[in-house]
Design a binder for these strands. Structure first.
Lengths: 180, 180
DNA sequence: CTCCAGATATGACACAGTGGACGATCTGCG
DNA sequence: CGCAGATCGTCCACTGTGTCATATCTGGAG
């Protein structure tokens, strides 16, 4: 019940399925939750150290290379169970393109449309990936639900990009023009 | 050109429109960019200190209370112009509900649906707010563009929540059931 | 008018999360 | 063999979040 941050909780969640090392945890996190909860290696190792100190995981022998697998403890399982049953916070979006766009007067519509266009392929790829995941027999329905969000989200982004030119059309025609 | 983080850049962007204090900047950021770039008070003051050190802003007299307004300098304007013209990064989403959902096997569909339902009013309110902003004559078309994203996004979330029960229906009927 | 509750305004600090650099170890293959 | 590249962990500086503290001003109750 000792409160966990979401990243630590996710690591416990993965460890609840078997022993894994930091590197493997990083990969698992990247593949399975990476689209809505980004986790870096640095933080994985930091959280592992902290979880280990708090007795929620223990080192389990040694793997190949310097690999250090961890096993979840009973305390760890309890902490995870406590975390998973709590009402999650609202989501946070950090969208630099929108930030730039909010100050668009200093840049002009043309450049902004280029910026948006540069992002489009990435969104199309994600959408395609989600769509193929939707058919994947290996996912449980909970993971399917997260994929379904991804599809809705990417469709929304692409739809928005589609209507952008029309919205920005009635901006001052172009170019960095200071208001006031 | 000295590279700015997005938060610092946004503060310069606001200051480009006139002198503002930390508190006023916090409010402006919250209202205008808060939905896609969350900024806390602590960070505003930290960035102001850093920008001031780097000569991009200067204290401008004193306002009422302990209020300390800042004025942007020429160096600040240049740094901002440099930042706004750079291709923005891809967005980041941090969605705790999806994290919990990814580990849904340990919780069960019923609780997850409750969790999602608890978020619904917040999304409906945001959507309503965006829809009324869309009619707002006071926004320039760049800000309209950010609002348009908000509308697409919230519609996507609400649509997803609508299909959730169906997706989770074919999960193991209920309850925390450990797999393996 | 006085006083104090509450709003305004800034700051300090610990923790969470990001990104890049570094170095060591193993693996495969020319 | 030997070395290029992948694997694995560590470190550090910086950005972002959340909470607590503190000082100042404002508006009403008395």
């Amino acid at each position: 019940m000792t409160d966990l941050n979401p990243t630590a909780a996710a690591l416990l969640g993965f460890l609840a399925g078997g022993e894994l090392s930091g590197y493997e945890l990083t990969k698992a996190a990247d593949e399975i939750i990476g689209d809505f909860w980004h986790v870096t290696r640095s933080q994985v190792y930091r959280e592992l150290a902290s979880l280990s100190e708090r007795g929620m995981i223990v080192p389990a022998g040694t793997g190949p290379r310097a690999r250090q697998p961890y096993r979840i403890t009973e305390a760890g399982r309890e902490a995870f169970a406590g975390w998973v049953a709590r009402q999650p916070q609202l989501e946070q979006i950090r969208y630099p393109l929108l930030l730039t766009m909010a100050f668009g007067t200093w840049l002009g519509a043309d450049r902004l449309l280029e910026f948006a266009a540069a992002h489009r392929p990435a969104h199309e790829e994600r959408l395609a990936r989600y769509q193929s995941l939707r058919e994947d027999r290996g996912l449980d329905s909970y993971q399917k639900a997260t994929v379904a969000f991804g599809i809705r989200y990417e469709e929304a982004v692409l739809g928005w990009m589609g209507e952008l030119p029309a919205i920005l059309a009635d901006a001052a025609p172009d170019g960095p023009a200071a208001p006031d």
